[in-house]
């Protein structure tokens, strides 16, 4: 006995129309248990009714299902933002299959059973679509955060008239060095500073690549007519640099930011005066 696909499809459409209330209710329950009982967590409520109606509109074929896809994309985006897992998100869509199957089972006609295979394939397709948009939304969030982190982590601060400092914190890679270099050089031009201190106290490790990046930055600053001092080299890092055989050439390096500042001040012609007598903090009570 063979049932034409069209007949099965028609039967499913009829069932979806007749039992709308029942299927929706059941779907809501199933989705609830599947996603661990928190369908409405954090305002990411699932518009079951809307999705259901959009699905039926897409079946009648009047508008090709773009409405439904829009709804599903919106659902997975909001779920990605609210920290749902991918399987929680996709299981909401797959839950519909189970709800419809119960109706099909009660109906029991061969058309309905044949049609259910078609219907389940359709739901699978939409489920996968949800999955894809979820992954895309997650990736965009990660990319945005990486960019924000990049902006956050590279401040250029002014230490003195004509002296700027870049405290570097975290691992230096090519992308970050590029940002740091551009920002530093731009600041040199804007403030007319002739001295820059690159402080690497917060850089956990210096390898040949990081050293290369630092050298490039210093060379670029030199081309523009500014001198760089590298400071904050910890004992272990000094050891690594020597072991790796990295040559800093004639670039001035200092152990601490304070030493580098003193060097830069001397270079720019600031004179230091020794205090006559040791300063003692004297506190007098008012009144």
């Amino acid at each position: 006995m063979t049932v034409p696909v069209d007949a099965g499809r028609r039967r499913i459409e009829e069932l979806l129309e007749e039992h709308e209330e029942q299927i929706l209710g059941r779907w809501f329950e199933i989705a609830g248990t599947m996603s661990g009982g928190h369908v409405d967590r954090g305002g990411a409520a699932v518009p079951f009714g809307e999705i259901y109606r959009a699905l039926r509109r897409s079946l009648t074929g009047s508008e090709g299902g773009s409405d439904l896809r829009g709804l599903l994309a919106e659902l997975s985006r909001s779920r990605a933002r609210h920290g749902f897992t991918p399987s929680e998100t996709a299981s909401v869509v797959f839950g519909l299959k189970e709800a419809v199957y119960e109706i099909v089972e009660a109906d029991g006609t061969p058309e309905a059973l044949r049609g259910f295979i078609w219907f389940s394939r359709l739901v699978d397709e939409h489920g996968l679509f949800t999955f894809e948009t979820y992954a895309a939304a997650r990736e965009r969030i990660i990319a945005d955060q990486a960019e924000q982190l990049l902006e956050l982590s590279t401040p250029v601060v002014k230490l003195w008239e004509g002296i700027v400092a870049v405290p570097l914190v975290g691992t230096l890679d090519s992308a970050r060095t590029q940002v740091v270099m551009e920002k530093l050089l731009q600041t040199l031009v804007e403030t007319g500073s002739e001295h820059a201190v690159i402080d690497i106290t917060g850089v956990p490790a210096v390898d040949t690549q990081v050293a290369q990046h630092l050298l490039k930055t210093v060379m670029a600053a030199r081309l523009m007519g500014a001198e760089c001092v590298i400071s904050g080299i910890r004992p272990q890092i000094a050891h690594t640099i020597v072991t790796l055989g990295i040559e800093f050439g004639d670039i001035v390096t200092k152990a601490s930011l304070a030493d580098a500042l003193v060097h830069a001040l001397r270079q720019s012609g600031v004179e230091f005066a020794e205090a006559r007598s040791p300063r003692i903090a004297v506190r007098t009570e008012a009144g």
């Binding site: 590029q178 270099m181 551009e182 050089l185 060379m219 670029a220 600053a221 081309l223 523009m224």
Partner: peptide
């Protein structure tokens, strides 16, 4: 010298 030029040269 502009920053972009300096970076390119390096």
């Amino acid at each position: 010298m502009r920053p972009a030029v300096a970076i390119t040269l390096v």
